[in-house]
Amino acid sequence: MRKFLRRFVSDYKEYILLIFLSVISLTILAQNEKPAAKHLKTFALGNFAVINEIINSIVSILKSDESRDDLRNENAHLMLELNRLRKYKAENEELRSMIALKDTSKYPLIPVKIISKLVTKSQGNFIVNRGSNNEIRKGMPVINNKGLVGLIMDVTENYSVVQNLYNSNLSIAVTLQRINVNGILNYDGKNLIIKDVPTTYDVQIGDIIETSDFSSIFPPSIPIGIVSKKESNVLGLLHNLKVEPFVNIFAANNLFILKIIPSKQINQLEMNLIK
């Protein structure tokens, strides 16, 4: 029996090893959210990101920064718009004070720079150069000048992992601005889609998608994108809406983190949904 076993192991050692290592990999995959796995990941990420940041600073000198050019362009437009808005501001403040409306549009912003990206079709992740030392916490929304980029998923002392819109694990409560219809935005590995919107709603191509009032993670009304395509399901009762984001995720370099700490209980519920 022992001889047989020895021969068996010797003949099939490659397969036994493969099965053994595959089982370990899948077990680790299942343990992703366990504190021990998170701790190890945080430790490795925090240390390795230092090297990435150094290399990134060298690389960024050599490459033309698309987002910088965009920002310059945006700056010129904003300057023109500023004068117009100043006039509106005075009027707005007067009206606001009249109806005692609380100004909810002021969130502190933390500027960050992307130092590395994990480029795959289904796992859109960035590592950015600020962490818990800059009061960044898990669950904070990430934006740029165009709109929503993603969500902080992991934080080390000096670095954070951003799960961007092109991550199949991220689900966002959204609203179609014009008709005020709610839905859940997901990345299906190919497109950003909002599934199962009843065809009775008057959804039109070009409708603006923004974060929903129902989300406790994201503040309401952050622009996300526009409806670029409608697809009816087999029965024709529901729509799947394809969304084109405002932000060019692949070209993004400089981002802002909205310093919002949501209600812990609701946040936990929503983070569970994201998982």
């Binding site: 995959l29 299942a30 990941k41 490795a44 994990l118 590592i127 992991d154």
Partner: peptide, 13 residues
């Protein structure tokens, strides 16, 4: 997996 911030175990597998 651990330095990229991705799903731990995915590249491993």
């Amino acid at each position: 997996d651990i330095i990229s911030g991705g799903l731990t175990g995915a590249f491993m597998f």
